[in-house]
């Protein structure tokens, strides 16, 4: 699968990744291979329990936080295996950011939330100010919060909190952003704003969106990948997958004939 037409190679290239739980026969993920080109939004869909969340968590080594899971295969970031011995996950995660299902703002001010990742590496204050403003603009939150950056982040609404989490991930200037069902805890209006944020972000980032909602995939994704029982069944441009799926399983899922 090649990307959306640029002459660069894939940013992220997954080669035969498997995840196994200790003492469990069936792997959680089974030999998954897929490339992610620059400036694209790929939606991962599939029934619950199919391994979508586990899969995105392998892409920034978050999966290692769950005790008892073993990862096999390679995840190449710009050609470098992030699971190589001499690569530290802390540095991987600065290039491959993540947004979670529920808004996970920290109990500090709006500004400090957005600046969190930058503070860790001692950037200058002007640089932090600039990066925070830019990140908040890109996540579509700037106009709403620019006058109250010092207020606690928990005073924001759920949708605003989620966009703050996106801004927080953007501020450290990653290349890839993993979005794990980012709208599942939001109301329709907030969902719509987050979706439009995602659409502008795909101009510059590799977005990988986990969603249980095929409609959302249809609205925002360039490409859809369908996972089932830990296996990657099919991947292709959104229209192809939704309208002309090659696999029977995919068709059943798209047409809602199984959960």
């Amino acid at each position: 699968m090649s990307g959306t037409g640029l002459d660069m190679g894939p940013v992220l290239s997954v080669r035969g990744v498997s995840v196994r739980a200790r003492k469990v026969e069936r792997p959680l993920l089974d030999q998954i291979s897929i490339d992610f080109a620059p400036r694209s939004l790929t939606a991962l869909v599939g029934p619950s329990g199919c391994g979508k969340s586990t899969f995105v968590r392998t892409l920034n080594r978050m999966v290692e936080l769950t005790p008892g899971l073993r990862v096999g295969g390679q995840v190449l970031y710009l050609g470098q295996d992030i699971y190589a011995r001499n690569v530290n996950p802390v540095l991987v995660r600065r290039r491959i950011g993540m947004v979670f299902q529920r808004p996970t703002v920290f109990p500090i001010s709006i500004f400090e939330n957005a600046a969190f990742g930058l503070r860790l590496v001692h950037e200058s204050n002007e640089e932090i100010d600039r990066a925070v403003a830019q990140a908040l603009q890109r996540s579509g939150l700037w106009e709403e919060v620019k006058d109250r950056l010092d207020e606690p982040a928990l005073s924001l609404s759920g949708g605003q909190q989620q966009r703050l989490c996106i801004a927080r991930a953007l501020a450290v200037r990653p290349k890839v952003i993993l979005l794990d069902e980012p709208t599942s805890a939001l109301d329709p209006a907030a969902t719509q704003r987050v979706e439009s944020t995602m659409e502008t972000l795909k101009e510059d980032f590799v977005l990988i969106l986990v969603t249980h909602n095929v409609g959302q995939a249809a609205r925002v994704a360039d490409r859809v990948a369908f996972l089932h029982s830990g296996r990657l069944i099919e991947v292709g441009p959104t229209a192809d997958i939704l309208e002309r799926p090659k696999e029977a399983l995919t068709e059943q899922f798209i047409t809602g004939r199984f959960t």
């Binding site: 802390v90 995660r93 600065r94 996970t104 991930a169």
Partner: peptide, 9 residues
């Protein structure tokens, strides 16, 4: 996890 996902130790 969100802290770690931002590249914090």
């Amino acid at each position: 996890e969100s802290g770690l996902a931002l590249g914090a130790t």
